[in-house]
Amino acid sequence: MPALCSNCSEKRAMLKRPKTGHSLCKLCFFFAFEEEIHQTIVAAKLFKPGETVGIAASGGKDSTVLAYIMKLLNERYNYGLKLMLISVDEGITGYRDDSLETVKRNQQQYELPLKIVSYEELYGWSMDAIVKQVGLKNNCTFCGVFRRQALDRGAIMLRVDKICTGHNADDVAETVLMNVLRGDIARLRRCTAISTASEGDGVVPRCKPLKYAYEKEIVLYAYFKKLDYFSTECIYSPNAYRGYARTFLKDLESIRPSSIIDIIHSGENLSVREGVKMPVQGTCSRCGYISSQALCKACVLLEGLNRGLPKLGIGKHHRLHEKILSQQPLTENEEKKLKSGDF
């Protein structure tokens, strides 16, 4: 028989919180979990009364819990926010079509308006079609870059002031590790930020209210509350680098649960020495989206797809971008390098 709740000492404890080590009953856990997210929102001043906030909703556990809690806290604490759901349809048969059904049910359950934007309509390419061309390596690069922009486009169509995403503590810690492993200093510096300021036209500020919430607690919250969510892993993701960082992180967590929050803490307090070269943010000369190059990553990837040269956006081919911009023909050798042969 498990012990009693260490908070109310009345009911049976139902879980051990990884962050604090406390054993709590369902009700005390719900309260603590919700209050911590409220504290995160208040401390970081994520929202202002009267704002319209788009919740990036995939139908997965994180965004479902996010939508549920945002609605709950908005009512409990009178945030004065207008909430909406924004979903991206990547066009992945057998995965996203099913998860979007979950989002549509959430729309009913939480009575929030929903907007779905699709890769097909924005880019003319679904992920199914992209994978057919590029295979199962680097396909996540296309998906990630396109999704970021798709969410912004959806947000602009809905005229929302901010987007919030369901990134949890485990996600942030994974990203810190990945950026360390890749030596990506620019991303390492910004990946722990809880919110991004508007970086220019066409980019909507984003925030992560679940930044300090453990995945384990999110899953248990959804399970105990019987929230309706979709839990299949993307069929195209098995080769993604993130998976290795994730497994490593889970191993660390099983030895010492605070590892996750400790990695985030380390990431937050890193400072980059002066004189380290950082990319300068500009705008894409084709679509106007933020970019540190002449062409943004989405435009380069898309150009590669449309020309049958999918490797164009993978790795460094900056010199070729000017040729593309000025519509000069590529040499045979350059074309050969960018074809999908050794993908």
Partner: peptide
Amino acid sequence: ADWELMGELDYQIQDKDNIVFISTLHG
């Protein structure tokens, strides 16, 4: 209830116990 409260692998299964495995994988 979270099996971390029950001694994990050392827990002695009783009659009619209900055991649930939940994947935390990304959706």
